Simulated assay, not measured.
Amino acid sequence: AVERIIYKLDLQNHCERACGTYSGGNKRKLSTAMALIGDPGVVFLDEPTTGVDPKTRRFLWDVLIKATAEGRTLVLTSHSMDEITAVSTRVTIMVGGKMRCLGSLQHLRSRFGQGLTVIVKTEKGADPGPAKNFILHEFEDSELIEEHTNMMTIRIPQKKVLWSQVFKALQDGQQRYHIEDYSVSQTSLEQIFIMFAHGQEAINDSDLNYDREAAEEELERSSSMKI
């Protein structure tokens, strides 16, 4: 079991050395190996990739993903939104020592997201005004967030529009309004975290109570929880 975990964490060239001489990345690998040895059913990890280089970080993510595929439940804390997105199936956000929400990434985006973000780039030399006015008039309550030369960012409340409607409108108006390129995305996990941390009024007590009830029902249907 020890040799297997050494090779799994790529520590075979360092296993004869004192751990105090390890680099930061290898120390993180060693910590992960110690947590996984013995094939525990539940593994708790605190900031497992803090301070490591991007290559080692992705290597450790792969190790954690494989561990969940083998049937283990991982409970980890992290301030890295990329890490949470890469390895998590369920996420909880804690503010002031209290769990404020719990659910899948898509559930949190749908429940607490601020809508769709549309980034539009108009053709060089073209007047961006018509494209901007087209989008703002096409989608009710849409808001111009940022504009710079031929680039603009517009937020559209998702509750009032479907993804397909946004893509269809942009595609239909692409040639007429000289749109060179565009992208549509949901509210990021980082934006949702900041929203909770700042205690925005948009998230009221009834929303949080509903989310806790939904989370409890989800946990009852599941035999394990991966965060």
Rank of each mutant, 00 (worst) to 15 (best):
K98T: 10
P130R: 07
E146L: 10
D211P: 00
E213A: 13
S223F: 05
E217D: 10
A215P: 09
E180N: 11
S78I: 01
K66V: 04
A197Y: 12
C101N: 01
L36F: 08
I145V: 06
R72Q: 13
F112L: 05
Q106M: 11
K132Y: 04
M81L: 13
M99D: 03
T50Q: 08
I93R: 04
V42H: 08
E190H: 10
F134W: 07
A18I: 13
L189D: 04
F167S: 14
H148E: 15
L60S: 07
A202Y: 12
S104N: 10
T77L: 04
G129C: 07
E123G: 03
T122W: 00
R111W: 06
R212S: 10
R90K: 15
S142M: 07
R72W: 05
F134M: 13
Q175R: 10
V42W: 11
K226Y: 05
S78C: 06
N26D: 12
L189G: 03
R109Y: 07
P130H: 07
I84S: 02
M34A: 09
V95T: 09
I6L: 01
R17D: 13
E138I: 03
D127V: 03
Q171W: 06
L144Q: 14
L105P: 11
T68I: 12
Q200T: 12
D211N: 11
F134A: 06
M81D: 09
C15M: 11
E70I: 02
R111F: 01
G173W: 05
T68A: 12
E83W: 01
F139N: 02
E47S: 02
S185F: 03
H14Y: 11
R28S: 07
E213P: 02
R100Q: 15
Y7L: 15
L11G: 04
V161Y: 01
L136S: 00
S23Y: 09
N133T: 06
S223E: 13
E216N: 11
V184E: 04
K66W: 08
F196D: 07
P157G: 08
T122C: 11
D127M: 03
